[in-house]
Lab assay of single mutants.
Amino acid sequence: KEWNEKELQKLHCAFASLPKHKPGFWSEVAAAVGSRSPEECQRKYMENP
């Protein structure tokens, strides 16, 4: 399903605030978004950083 504005906001906010070198980075991003898997978050971010 399409990403909504709130999900995208959470994605970018989590990406900006979490340490990128940490193992499980995308899992933490997904936990912050709440409604998406780590894979979905990574794919979406890579599509549209």
Results as ranks from 00 to 15, higher is better:
residue 2 E to M: 10
residue 30 A to D: 02
residue 24 G to E: 12
residue 34 G to Y: 00
residue 16 A to C: 05
residue 17 S to K: 08
residue 46 M to G: 14
residue 43 R to Q: 07
residue 17 S to G: 11
residue 30 A to N: 01
residue 36 R to D: 02
residue 23 P to E: 15
residue 39 E to G: 11
residue 3 W to N: 02
residue 21 H to E: 15
residue 24 G to Y: 07
residue 48 N to D: 15
residue 1 K to I: 08
residue 14 A to L: 03
residue 39 E to M: 10
residue 20 K to W: 04
residue 16 A to I: 07
residue 21 H to C: 13
residue 33 V to G: 02
residue 2 E to A: 07
residue 3 W to A: 03
residue 22 K to V: 07
residue 14 A to T: 09
residue 47 E to G: 08
residue 22 K to R: 11
residue 3 W to T: 05
residue 16 A to V: 07
residue 46 M to P: 02
residue 47 E to L: 05
residue 6 K to V: 10
residue 47 E to T: 09
residue 3 W to Q: 02
residue 25 F to Q: 04
residue 46 M to A: 13
residue 25 F to N: 07
residue 45 Y to M: 14
residue 39 E to C: 07
residue 40 E to N: 02
residue 17 S to R: 13
residue 6 K to S: 14
residue 11 L to Y: 03
residue 5 E to R: 08
residue 19 P to A: 12
residue 29 V to H: 02
residue 14 A to G: 04
residue 24 G to L: 11
residue 41 C to R: 00
residue 45 Y to I: 15
residue 28 E to M: 07
residue 45 Y to S: 14
residue 13 C to G: 15
residue 18 L to P: 03
residue 39 E to D: 13
residue 7 E to D: 07
residue 6 K to M: 05
residue 11 L to E: 02
residue 44 K to M: 12
residue 9 Q to R: 10
residue 45 Y to E: 07
residue 28 E to T: 09
residue 15 F to K: 07
residue 10 K to G: 07
residue 40 E to S: 06
residue 34 G to I: 02
residue 40 E to W: 00
residue 1 K to R: 10
residue 24 G to F: 03
residue 39 E to I: 10
residue 13 C to F: 11
residue 32 A to L: 13
residue 30 A to P: 01
residue 13 C to Q: 15
residue 4 N to R: 04
residue 33 V to N: 02
residue 40 E to Y: 00
residue 49 P to D: 03
residue 45 Y to A: 15
residue 31 A to P: 01
residue 22 K to T: 10
residue 43 R to I: 09
residue 12 H to F: 10
residue 45 Y to W: 12
residue 30 A to G: 06
residue 30 A to H: 01
residue 28 E to Y: 06
residue 1 K to C: 07
residue 40 E to G: 00
residue 37 S to K: 05
residue 29 V to F: 00
residue 41 C to W: 00
residue 48 N to H: 11
residue 32 A to I: 13
residue 45 Y to K: 05
residue 29 V to N: 01
residue 25 F to D: 10
residue 47 E to V: 03
residue 32 A to E: 15
residue 16 A to G: 11
residue 42 Q to V: 03
residue 47 E to W: 04
residue 10 K to P: 00
residue 13 C to N: 13
residue 8 L to M: 11
residue 43 R to T: 12
residue 5 E to C: 12
residue 5 E to G: 05
residue 31 A to L: 13
residue 19 P to E: 14
residue 24 G to M: 11
residue 49 P to C: 13
residue 43 R to P: 01
residue 18 L to A: 11
residue 16 A to E: 13
residue 38 P to E: 13
residue 47 E to C: 05
residue 37 S to N: 05
residue 48 N to I: 12
residue 19 P to N: 09
residue 30 A to E: 01
residue 12 H to W: 04
residue 10 K to C: 11
residue 11 L to R: 01
residue 26 W to G: 04
residue 18 L to H: 07
residue 16 A to S: 11
residue 31 A to D: 09
residue 10 K to V: 09
residue 19 P to Y: 06
residue 27 S to G: 12
residue 37 S to H: 07
residue 14 A to I: 14
residue 3 W to L: 02
residue 14 A to W: 01
residue 20 K to V: 06
residue 6 K to D: 14
residue 28 E to N: 11
residue 48 N to E: 09
residue 16 A to R: 10
residue 13 C to L: 12
residue 28 E to P: 00
residue 43 R to D: 10
residue 23 P to L: 10
residue 2 E to S: 07
residue 25 F to E: 04
residue 26 W to H: 01
residue 4 N to G: 04
residue 31 A to Y: 09
